[in-house]
Amino acid sequence: MQYPFFISIPHGGTEIPPEVTDRFALNRQEVAYYSDPVTQTLYNFGNAAGAVIDTPVSRMVVDLNRPPLPLPPHDPDGIIKVRTIDGKPVYRAGLFPDIHLIHRLMMEWYFPYHQQIDELIDRNRIKIAFDCHTMLPFGSAEQKDAGKKRPLICLGNNGDNRGLAVNGGIITCPGPWIQELAQEFRREFSPEFPGGAVAINNPFSGGFIINAHYWRKGIPWIQIEINRSLYEPGVNPDPSREPAYGQIDLLREKIWRVLTGFWDRPGRDEPGE
């Protein structure tokens, strides 16, 4: 059975394009650590999902989950990174891309990804979309939750901790939907991790992708963040450690049971208000 799910995996790539290779200050292990490569396995549901999109390019080159403006240096963690989430420079001194190279990178990687999202949704009768990520167990130095322990699962729809709109803002899926998805995650993960929390919009309420494409197409979007401690033991994962892919396969099965269990609830068809 194929479900009407759209799966976006914007941070799974680790490729550094040749035009910036000699400029990069990060080594290969660091690029993998600051990217999200496990997501390409963790959320690979194959043909069971209506449509899937990912990218080979590392988010450290072009972050597809950031708005196209502002450009650096106004946002050091924006679409073109100045430094990492813990303060390491991404580019060697004096070799940061100029505006012409930034434009080239955006035209090659950024805009095509977002165009393909629209095209895939139009072609595949999608009814709900998930932007899929993993997160470090603790907030890093330059993040708003620096040093704080994170939940096992974080779901985002641009709302409050119940998934409801804040101060007249726009949420990217109905509040009851994200609450029900959180219940499914708790049901699946609580027996194995009784102390683990499933949070809504904390520490991440959703990035550019769910907000922009909800506006563009109107179908519900939810951002999913899975804690890396579920497959990388320890509170500060070693960038050189190879992920436990057998465990990731089990996690993928759990996540798929959660998504399908959520969608198969009675009356689930069209988004409500």
Rank of each mutant, 00 (worst) to 15 (best):
K149G: 14
K149I: 11
K149A: 15
P151S: 14
L152H: 07
L152Y: 06
L152T: 03
I153T: 00
C154A: 13
C154I: 03
C154W: 00
G156D: 10
G156E: 02
N157L: 09
N157V: 09
N157H: 07
G159E: 08
D160M: 06
D160S: 05
R162Y: 12
G163S: 02
G163L: 01
L164S: 12
G168T: 06
G169C: 10
G169P: 12
I170K: 15
I170Q: 15
I171C: 11
T172W: 07
T172Q: 07
G175W: 02
P176K: 06
W177A: 13
W177D: 13
W177E: 12
I178T: 06
I178G: 00
I178M: 09
E180N: 14
E184W: 09
E184K: 10
E184M: 13
R186C: 12
R187G: 09
S190H: 09
P191R: 04
P191K: 04
E192I: 13
F193C: 08
F193S: 01
G196M: 06
G196N: 09
A197L: 15
V198G: 01
V198K: 01
I200M: 09
I200A: 08
N201P: 05
N202K: 11
P203R: 00
P203A: 09
P203V: 03
F204H: 11
S205R: 13
S205Q: 13
S205I: 10
S205V: 06
G206K: 03
I209H: 04
I210H: 01
I210Y: 01
N211I: 02
N211Q: 14
N211G: 13
N211W: 07
A212D: 11
A212L: 02
H213E: 00
H213Q: 03
Y214C: 04
W215C: 06
R216P: 03
R216T: 11
R216I: 10
K217P: 04
G218K: 08
I219V: 13
I219A: 06
P220Y: 04
P220Q: 07
W221H: 15
W221C: 08
I224D: 00
I224G: 00
E225H: 01
N227W: 02
N227H: 00
R228H: 08
R228Q: 14
S229I: 12
Y231Q: 00
P233Q: 03
G234A: 01
G234P: 01
V235E: 15
V235I: 15
N236M: 15
R241A: 12
R241I: 09
R241K: 10
R241Y: 00
E242I: 14
E242S: 15
P243L: 10
A244I: 10
A244Y: 11
Y245P: 00
Q247F: 07
Q247C: 11
D249Q: 12
L250V: 14
L250S: 14
L251T: 04
R252I: 03
E253K: 12
K254W: 02
I255C: 11
I255L: 15
I255W: 09
V258E: 04
V258H: 02
L259S: 02
L259W: 02
T260L: 13
T260S: 14
G261A: 11
G261Y: 08
G261S: 08
